[in-house]
């Protein structure tokens, strides 16, 4: 709890809309408390821009407690910035040095087109989910929850995969803009649970097909996704996805 203030230079990507081309703008900013979150720092900048009669920087954010997955800034060459295991909203200014220049870019991927400034369209993730990221059970059909015991280890592992917040940092971090970690996490969550078995094969085939259609790149196992994932989703999920895919392809009709 040693609050200090910082003077910084921000280099931020500005882009009017999907159709126009963007460019970087540079903004000096001073008196930033080290206790502020990164987004609160951008709030301060925006307040200043509004006062000066300029357009504030558009960026996605909502819960500001690291769980909704909406915030998405590529800060100094890394998704969600320099700190390991946090989203941008949980990144605090104490992670930066006095006088630093901070480069802020939107997620870059053809499947995540920029809508404005730092706001990108991640509906490709929703479409992958719609293709197969579910268990087909209509409301009202469920049996008693405890009639289906699930070993703690499997349940815990499934939960670790399910912890994905769908922020897209994995895609942003990957040099190939691959969405494998996102897809793998969902495939793993269900592959590890007995409820997920009936659709195990079709799910992985459909989700991978949709991932392909959205134009995400391939996985070269660099591990950048795992390292940058704010929720620590493991790369072993990708290996499981590959395994699931191979066996599903081999047995599909």
């Amino acid at each position: 709890m040693s609050e200090k203030t910082l003077n910084l230079t921000l280099k931020i990507w500005r882009q009017k809309n999907k159709e126009t081309r963007g460019s970087f703008e540079t903004y000096p900013i001073s008196g930033i408390s080290t206790d502020m979150s990164f987004l609160e720092m951008v709030d301060v900048l925006n307040e200043k821009l509004i006062t000066d009669g300029k357009e504030p920087v558009a960026f996605d954010h909502d819960c500001r407690e690291g769980i909704c997955g909406m915030c998405s800034m590529y800060i100094n060459g890394r998704p969600h910035g320099p700190k390991h295991g946090v989203t941008t909203c949980q990144l605090h200014m104490r992670s930066f040095k006095e006088g630093e220049t901070i480069v802020i870019e939107p997620w870059r991927a053809s499947a995540f087109p920029v809508l404005k400034d730092l706001v990108v369209d991640r509906s490709s993730f929703d479409r992958i989910m719609a293709a197969g990221g579910f268990i087909s059970v209509n409301t009202g059909n469920a049996q008693d929850a405890n009639s289906l015991p699930i070993g703690k280890d499997d349940a815990d592992e499934s939960f670790s995969s399910a912890a994905c917040i769908g922020c897209g940092a994995c895609v942003a971090a990957c040099k190939n803009a691959s969405a494998m970690l996102f897809v793998a996490a969902k495939v793993s969550q269900y592959a590890l649970l007995p409820q997920g078995q009936p659709e195990r094969s079709t799910r992985v085939l459909k989700m991978v097909a949709q991932m392909e259609q959205e134009g995400f790149g391939s996985c070269t196992n660099t591990g950048a996704c795992e390292a940058e994932c704010p929720k620590g989703i493991s790369l072993s999920n990708i290996a499981r996805l590959n395994r699931e895919y191979i066996s599903a392809s081999a047995s599909s009709k």
Binding site: G151, K152, A155, Q195
Partner: peptide, 22 residues
């Protein structure tokens, strides 16, 4: 109670005991 049943059926990974129950 139905909510828990429905959620488990749709793959929500609730915390479990070693015996596999919720």
């Amino acid at each position: 109670g139905n909510i828990i049943d429905q959620s488990v059926a749709s793959g929500v990974p609730f915390a479990r005991e070693y015996g596999g129950l919720l």
